[in-house]
Computed example of a mutant assay.
Amino acid sequence: LFDIFINVIKDQATDVSVKEMIRLNLMCEKIPSLPSRPKKVLLIGSSGLSIGQAGEFDYSGSQAIKALGEENIQTVLINPNIATVQTSKGLADKVYFLPLVAEYVEQVIKVERPDGVLLTFGGQTGLNCGIELERKGVFKKYNVQVLGTPIQSIIDTEDRKIFSEKISSIGEKVASSLAAHSVEEALQAAGKLGYPVMTRAAFSLGGLGSGFANNEEELKVLASQALAHSVQLIV
């Protein structure tokens, strides 16, 4: 409206009325196409939760199922853990009590043919499974859209080296670090950085392989534990 007011002041000789100018300005020439609405969504569940472990992924997954149900979207859940809220009767339309590994999830996708999949409600297990399915081309093969956080964003944040580079690229301060794929590389990285060092494994569950090392012996123990569960360790 302000732009129209300015134009009227500048061009007072125009024959077009202000009302007509507003109508023309607000008129939509082309109706924007809305994104296709999924009819069926597969949700990767929270998997196993140890006693004393936080159940936030069970809670968030349960809320996601409820939200999808309110939108009349059919929900399919895969979760091997029967002791969760999200696997309760009457919540998801269909539940598969199967391990969260790529082979089993692909079979569920093959049978159910969902329009979309949610990967970010199953914790680290769900993220790792989703990345593996993407790399195997399963989502593309069955035309399944990844809803929410894109796969590449998940990889960029889970890969410690890439994440560190991304943070540095936007000018944020980040601690000096080096990525290692073996115990020897971890020791070399610590030698360059100087002790004490902190380690964190990529794509790891519950912070496995994380900790502080004041010398080579402590780092060897940490690195061995971390690389038993992950292919990458950030020092």
Rank of each mutant, 00 (worst) to 15 (best):
F2R: 15
D3A: 11
D3F: 03
I4A: 09
I6Y: 05
I9W: 15
I9E: 05
I9C: 10
T14Y: 12
D15Q: 12
V16S: 11
V18G: 11
V18E: 10
M21P: 01
L24E: 10
K30M: 10
S33E: 07
L34Y: 05
L34C: 01
R37H: 03
R37G: 00
K39D: 07
I44R: 03
S46I: 03
L49G: 00
S50K: 14
Q53L: 09
D58P: 01
S60W: 06
Q63G: 02
K66P: 00
A67N: 01
A67H: 03
L68G: 01
N72C: 04
N79L: 07
P80Y: 12
P80L: 12
N81F: 12
T84K: 03
K89P: 00
G90W: 15
G90P: 10
A92R: 07
Y96E: 07
L100Y: 07
L100D: 12
E106R: 15
E106Y: 15
P114H: 11
D115E: 09
G116E: 10
L118G: 04
L118C: 06
T120W: 02
G123H: 04
T125D: 13
T125C: 11
N128Q: 13
I131A: 09
I131M: 12
E134K: 12
K136F: 12
K140C: 08
V146L: 09
L147A: 14
L147T: 02
I155K: 14
E158P: 15
E158T: 12
K161W: 14
S164N: 14
E165M: 14
I170M: 09
I170Y: 02
I170Q: 11
K173L: 09
V174D: 09
V174S: 08
A175I: 15
A175D: 06
S176Y: 08
A180F: 07
A180P: 00
A180S: 05
Q188K: 04
V197H: 01
R200L: 09
L205A: 03
L205I: 12
G206N: 10
G209H: 02
S210I: 03
A213T: 12
A213N: 08
A213E: 07
N215Q: 05
E216A: 05
E216F: 00
L219P: 06
L222A: 05
L222M: 07
A226F: 07
S230H: 02
Q232I: 06
Q232M: 04
